[in-house]
Simulated scan of single mutants.
Amino acid sequence: MNERVPQSKPIAVSIGERGTISAGTTASGCEISIPYLVKRGQGDGPCLWVNAAVHGDEINGVFAAQRFFDRLDPSVMTGSVVVTPVANVLAFDERRKTALIDSIDMDQSFPGRANGFATERAAAALFDRFGKSADVVINIHTLGTPFDAAPYAVYKVHPEARLSEAELLAHIACFEPTVACRMPVANASGELPGNIGGALDYQSLSLGAIAFMVELGGGGRLEEDRVEHGVAGLMRLAGKVGILTASPDPTARKIRRVTRRAHRLANAGGLFEPKVLPGTAVNAGGSIGSIRNLFGDVIEDIAVEVDSWVIAVRRDPVVHSGDRVAFLATEWSDVDVPA
Rank of each mutant, 00 (worst) to 15 (best):
E167C: 05
A238N: 03
I34Q: 09
L48Y: 01
V325F: 06
L265V: 03
A339R: 14
V304E: 03
D107W: 01
D249G: 04
P151Q: 08
R264I: 14
D336L: 09
P35E: 02
C174G: 01
F295W: 02
F212L: 03
G230Y: 04
Y152I: 03
Q203F: 02
L216D: 09
H171Q: 08
A150D: 14
V76Q: 14
V304G: 05
R260M: 10
G24T: 14
K240C: 04
G269L: 04
M213F: 01
G16H: 02
V310W: 07
N2A: 12
M106N: 02
D225S: 15
T119G: 14
A170T: 10
L207P: 00
R324S: 10
G285P: 01
S22G: 12
I11Q: 02
T145N: 13
E167M: 11
T84S: 13
S109R: 09
A262G: 04
A246R: 13
V89M: 07
A339F: 05
F212V: 05
A114P: 02
N88T: 01
E215Y: 04
A329I: 08
G208F: 02
E120V: 03
G16I: 04
L205E: 06
G56M: 07
H229A: 13
N283F: 03
V76A: 13
D336T: 12
R292F: 06
R162M: 10
Q42V: 15
R71L: 12
P111F: 01
C181H: 13
D249E: 15
N115I: 09
R121Q: 15
L48M: 15
P317T: 09
S189W: 11
T142S: 15
V136A: 14
A65D: 00
A52H: 05
P6Q: 13
D307L: 05
N283L: 11
F147A: 13
D201W: 10
R162W: 02
G79P: 11
A65Q: 00
V136I: 15
I299L: 07
S22T: 07
M1I: 09
A284H: 09
G279E: 10
A262W: 00
M1C: 06
R324P: 01
H263N: 10
G286V: 08
W332F: 13
G29S: 10
N283P: 04
F68L: 09
N293K: 06
V62N: 01
D44F: 07
E3C: 04
L126C: 00
H320T: 05
V319G: 02
K240H: 12
H171C: 02
F92Q: 00
A252N: 13
G43D: 12
G208Y: 01
E3R: 14
H141W: 03
G197Q: 05
I11M: 11
G116C: 09
G190L: 07
R226F: 06
V137R: 07
W49T: 05
I15N: 13
I302W: 08
L168V: 12
F272I: 08
G230R: 01
M1W: 07
R18N: 11
L37V: 00
V136Q: 06
G79F: 07
L222P: 00
S290F: 14
G230P: 04
E191H: 09
T25C: 07
R292M: 14
M1A: 14
S8W: 03
E94G: 02
I299W: 07
V325M: 09
V241Y: 10
V81N: 00
G286H: 15
M235D: 09
E94A: 14
I210T: 12
G296D: 06
A186C: 05
